[in-house]
């Protein structure tokens, strides 16, 4: 019986450990659950990479005023169509002009076969390019500065 008493005293520490580990893991899962839900409620702006396009002086004439800044949450299509995330209602912008997205630490820009083309720092792009902060992007002559 003394062996049992000894075993039981040892196990009392084990039980305490298991119970608190249980409580800890439940709290952790609840925490993750709540975090996921709050991100869902905030419309995915919390954990997603953010960048923005800031209009700068262009040589083309524009028909409608531009916003002071266009935010990009992880992925954005730029174009005239209403399905685009950033809509630019100009004649020289194609319906789907270009797209910008974030993937594993880098921002990418791709021209979607637009008529007037897309240029980065004055260089017209033919393929996917990696964007750096303060790059100047031109959509058919309409200039923006890419900012993080």
């Amino acid at each position: 019986m003394t062996i049992y008493n000894f075993l039981s005293s040892i196990l009392s520490y084990v039980f305490t450990f298991i119970i608190y580990l249980f409580i800890f893991s439940v709290i952790r899962l609840i925490y993750l659950d709540v975090k996921k839900m709050s991100r869902f409620e905030k419309n995915n702006t919390d954990d997603v990479a953010c960048a923005s396009l800031k209009p700068v002086k262009s040589r083309v004439d524009i028909s409608s005023p531009l916003k002071s800044r266009y935010a990009i949450y992880g992925y954005a299509e730029i174009g005239r169509a209403s399905s685009c995330d950033i809509q630019l209602h100009e004649d020289f912008i194609s319906a789907k002009h270009a797209r910008i997205w974030f993937d594993s630490g880098e921002w990418y820009l791709e021209d979607l076969g637009s008529r007037n083309g897309t240029a980065v720092n004055g260089q017209r792009i033919r393929e996917v390019v990696i964007l750096d902060p303060e790059d100047e992007i031109s959509f058919g002559g309409l200039n923006f500065v890419f900012e993080l």
């Binding site: 039981s8 009392s12 039980f15």
Partner: peptide, 8 residues
């Protein structure tokens, strides 16, 4: 703190 153990 940790109890006397089940059965003790």
């Amino acid at each position: 703190y940790f109890g006397r153990g089940i059965g003790n």
